[in-house]
Design a protein around this nucleic acid. Sequence first.
DNA 1: TTTAAATGATCTTTATATAGACCATATAAT
DNA 2: ATTATATGGTCTATATAAAGATCATTTAAA
Lengths: 112, 112
Amino acid sequence: MPKSIKRTYSRYSRDATALLGGLIREARKERRLTAQELADRAGISRGLLQRIEKGDLKCEIGAVFEVASIVGVTLFDADEITLAKHLSQIKHKLALLPKSVRKKAKAVIDDF
Amino acid sequence: MPKSIKRTYSRYSRDATALLGGLIREARKERRLTAQELADRAGISRGLLQRIEKGDLKCEIGAVFEVASIVGVTLFDADEITLAKHLSQIKHKLALLPKSVRKKAKAVIDDF
DNA sequence: TTTAAATGATCTTTATATAGACCATATAAT
DNA sequence: ATTATATGGTCTATATAAAGATCATTTAAA
């Protein structure tokens, strides 16, 4: 990372991450798990769980999804079977699409 | 990070991340954007976009959500208004919950 | 078929996310 | 009210994610 990373995030990204974190926190409390307990189960530190629940955009998605699934917050509101089905469908559809996206070589000069 | 991080991920986390990446790739191609173009728009490198589309669990969630929203892949299948509403609802519900989770001080000895 | 472009992969450098420890505060239960 | 505990924050060391460059391969279009 040569130049320091200063990403900008859209409102949607910020809201979505904050909502996900809030849902996780709510689900954790409903299940009466302490932050430390949930962090242990997910194999992460308590500090990272705090950031996830706060909606910090700079957490790795794997850790977020792991915590979410432990407390029952599903992103695709899908059970495993449905999720796997969606996954195979996507792979199938992607196999049918062109492998690479090509731009038109030249713009059409249509106004002479 | 004293000890090297070797996280384990559940099948759900892996599938969900892979599905999300696949949906992003599909949406990108439908919109006829090259990987470089999408990466530029999201303010990330092409390499990171590649990992996101492959379903790499170790990408920051902010970058993933940003890319997803650019190509129109919504996680909460919610427009911004609905998302904001959910967000405020969550905050409200969290305000009503106990601030900290407490364990019962002592186990009940119920078998004498 | 030819060719230019898109993709996939690898490597290096550097910024940074994370673990783990610590401390202060808040708070639930006694 | 007291007290033990959960939470929130800070700090340091270190593993690692990301940028950017490069190269090979694939592939869509001419």
